[in-house]
């Protein structure tokens, strides 16, 4: 199986925030934390485009590279997960991430950071699958149930695709061809997955050399 990827089609996203709501309700995310958010450029004027953003589960993940206690790990499916028991709440992953995915619930006075929380690609965490501990710390483990991220699965316009990267690319390629080869850029792919390989959607965001 190829690695898991997210893709948000800016041509289709209608800023309904359904993905945000689905994520919040599926995982009962703590107050003050949004694992997914929708950002709208040119809001309310002609040329408006919206993009849904969460952790992109990068190939060369900056959060993983800077964590002082090495609490991150990458699964066989390319999903970047972290161990909240190890997290010290230093905020370095938040500094390093280009997408603003890692977030910290306030754990005390003066903005003291608690355990980092971020999108898990609905793959839970290190605890036993489907256990109460896993649910409390990381939310539901849909991947272990043979399901895919709730945000992508319930996206009404199918702007947000999530799952096996090859299938995501296939679906997107078909779509771009059907609409006349237009709007093939995919938000964040350059930053998250590196230079495009054969068959992958064009990255609208050039990777930094």
């Amino acid at each position: 199986m190829a690695r898991m990827k997210f893709l948000c089609d800016a041509e289709r996203c209608i800023e309904c925030n359904g993905c945000v709501t689905a994520c919040k309700q599926e995982h009962e995310v703590p107050w003050g934390v949004n694992r997914r958010r929708v950002v709208t450029i040119n809001d309310g004027v002609p040329g408006e485009k919206s993009i849904s953003v969460a952790c992109m589960h990068c190939s060369d993940a900056p959060c993983m590279a800077v964590c002082p206690v090495d609490c991150f790990y990458k699964t066989d499916e390319g999903v970047v997960l972290h161990d909240k028991d190890l997290c010290i709440g230093c905020g370095y992953c938040f500094y390093a991430c280009p997408f603003g995915a890692p977030q910290f619930p306030q754990a005390g006075a003066f903005g003291l950071r608690g355990k980092m929380d971020k999108c898990t690609f609905c793959a839970g965490g290190p605890e036993k699958d489907h256990s109460a501990e896993e649910w409390q710390k990381y939310g539901r483990n849909r991947l272990a149930e043979g399901k895919l991220p709730a945000c992508a699965e319930m996206c009404s316009t199918k702007a947000l695709l999530g799952g096996d990267g090859d299938i995501v690319a296939d679906i997107y390629r078909t779509r771009v061809l059907k609409r006349g080869g237009k709007g093939s850029e995919a938000y964040g792919w350059g930053s998250a997955y590196g230079p495009p390989t054969g068959g992958a959607p064009a990255a609208a965001t050039a990777p930094k050399s």
Binding site: A10, N34, V39, N42, D43, F99, G100, G180, G183, Y187
Partner: peptide
């Protein structure tokens, strides 16, 4: 289908509109 101006905005690091109240939530790529 040509959204080049929007992709420039994506890289501009300016905070765009979002309902997320987090700090810098409107920034798409930092």
């Amino acid at each position: 289908g040509n959204n080049a101006p929007v992709w420039r905005d994506v890289r501009s690091e300016k905070p765009y509109y979002t309902t997320d109240r987090g700090v810098e939530a409107g920034v798409l790529i930092q």
